[in-house]
Amino acid sequence: MGATRTPGQELRTLALGSCVALIMMDPKARCIAMVHVVLPESSIDPARSQKKPGHFADTAVPALLGEMKKLGSDNVGKGMIIKLVGGANVMDPNNTFNIGKRNALAIKKALWKFGMGPRAEDIGGRISRSVSVDVDTGKVKITSPGRDGWEL
């Protein structure tokens, strides 16, 4: 989990696989934050979610809002720009290995609780993405080995 309002800085993730990068940007407070969500529900390991709330969709959303608040953002609601990236999916009729899909859904559910939703998303498919976000421009850059990079 990271957040910044320092001009010239950028936030980046490692390769995401089925994890989802949740990105928040407040154009008014000029700050950004990003977290690398691994799993949908913190109930699977409450002790770990205390130490690493960003690991789980349901605890990641309030934790990231807290980071934004520390940087002066009180923009909970429609003013916050939210983007989702990652969540590469594995087709599994048993609903066990399709964690990418479940991660993205769980994040959206957690966002709805705060009256928020993603403005843009690049999720799913058989693609492992890495992401960087630029604090000055708000540009979200996505890379993936074997492909040319793109923006969201």
């Binding site: 390769a15 995401l16 696989g17 994890c19 590469a88 964690i99 990418g100 492992s128 080995p145 074997g146």
Partner: peptide, 11 residues
């Protein structure tokens, strides 16, 4: 899935 693939073949 955990982001530790080899390269372009990942996923």
């Amino acid at each position: 899935m955990s982001g530790t693939g080899t390269g372009a073949d990942t996923m």
